[in-house]
Design a protein around this nucleic acid. Sequence first.
DNA 1: TGTACATCAGTGAACGCGCGTTCACTGATGTAC
DNA 2: TGTACATCAGTGAACGCGCGTTCACTGATGTAC
Lengths: 205, 205
Amino acid sequence: MAKGEETRVRILDAAQDAILHKGFDATSIEEIVSADEITKGGFFYHFPDKNALALALIERYIAGEDQLFDELFGRAEEPNDDPLHRMLIGLQLMAELLEDLPNGHPGCMVASAAYQDRLFDRAVREKNRQAVLAWRKRFGGYFSEIAELYEPRDAVDLNVLADMISASVEGGIILSKALGEPLITAQQVRLVRSYLKLLFTPRTH
Amino acid sequence: MAKGEETRVRILDAAQDAILHKGFDATSIEEIVSADEITKGGFFYHFPDKNALALALIERYIAGEDQLFDELFGRAEEPNDDPLHRMLIGLQLMAELLEDLPNGHPGCMVASAAYQDRLFDRAVREKNRQAVLAWRKRFGGYFSEIAELYEPRDAVDLNVLADMISASVEGGIILSKALGEPLITAQQVRLVRSYLKLLFTPRTH
DNA sequence: TGTACATCAGTGAACGCGCGTTCACTGATGTAC
DNA sequence: TGTACATCAGTGAACGCGCGTTCACTGATGTAC
């Protein structure tokens, strides 16, 4: 990685950590750059203004999540797997990954932006919207495959079910932050897993 | 209501609306009071400093939620009702109430504070923590009653199940804000209801 | 009922500080010939 | 291999603006006698 790119990443890291605990406006550029031992001028070499920082942070966060979900649910090495099994394994892996974070999930940039939408321009808000839609599309696709093979025991909209995965993580993070209990998010993911098992597993008499 | 108390409430209303869309720090006192047509000096008559505003907002929000949950789940008029039935009715009422908000739920002060915890002093953070614990205790108590009568079909921790109600609302609000779809929160509450039905309803052959 | 005083619910000007942003400059590295 | 120039990745001082907070004052309302 070139020197400039490395500094840029360090700026994003420091900014994200502060923003997830203080909000965007309360996080000053001075504070961000002093954590990286550069100056304010250096910040403005990498970003034209503070709004561009927000955009870059959200884009990076979304890309990271997409890659992570590909790894957890993709399981490209076994493409013929049963889709329900693949989903349950994916949620299991996600829960384990969350349990391994000693301080819990540090927070979701999308959630942070959603609670500060009036601070950002249209480009940022639209990126945020597209991120959540992409999650819905991804998980909704998985559920379509599942529903072709398994009759759900209760009438559910598959897009709402897809949102449930995102919502349980987002909600878990909030409870976890408010209580200072790192394990909550993983527990909520496991609970969604329990629901899907009950919902799609055929009755055994 | 006395005149001063009325102004205080209007300050809190204006502040809450702005804070749920911009965050605490980015919401200036000037902006809050100009919405109410008073002056900055007037604000400081009602609150010693800005942190006291945060504390008052969170206390008011928590008290409002507690009262609402009492109404939705208490059903004091029929205390001998089946606890599972009461829970399902409560969630049904909650979903209907959320569906009736034309712009969706405006946002949760507890979530907003959780994503800006470094902005506040210990008193605010502790209030926030107690709020989530109270929700857990409330719903956990309901689930204890239910579990005494109905064997759950999957091994679940009742406190985690209690958190699920809070988490689905919190997560639903975030998705709803990010997508601009007001109905999402109600949908997520109905999905939790579907889970509880599957989890606790006895098998009928 | 009238008067004196206290309290309530603010007004409005002033303050010092930190913020985002600009800009002229600089040393190190890369490229052309 | 040496030299000239361009680009990269910053530095550091300066700016104007808006912020939270203070404070002396004020008019309206309430209370005591």
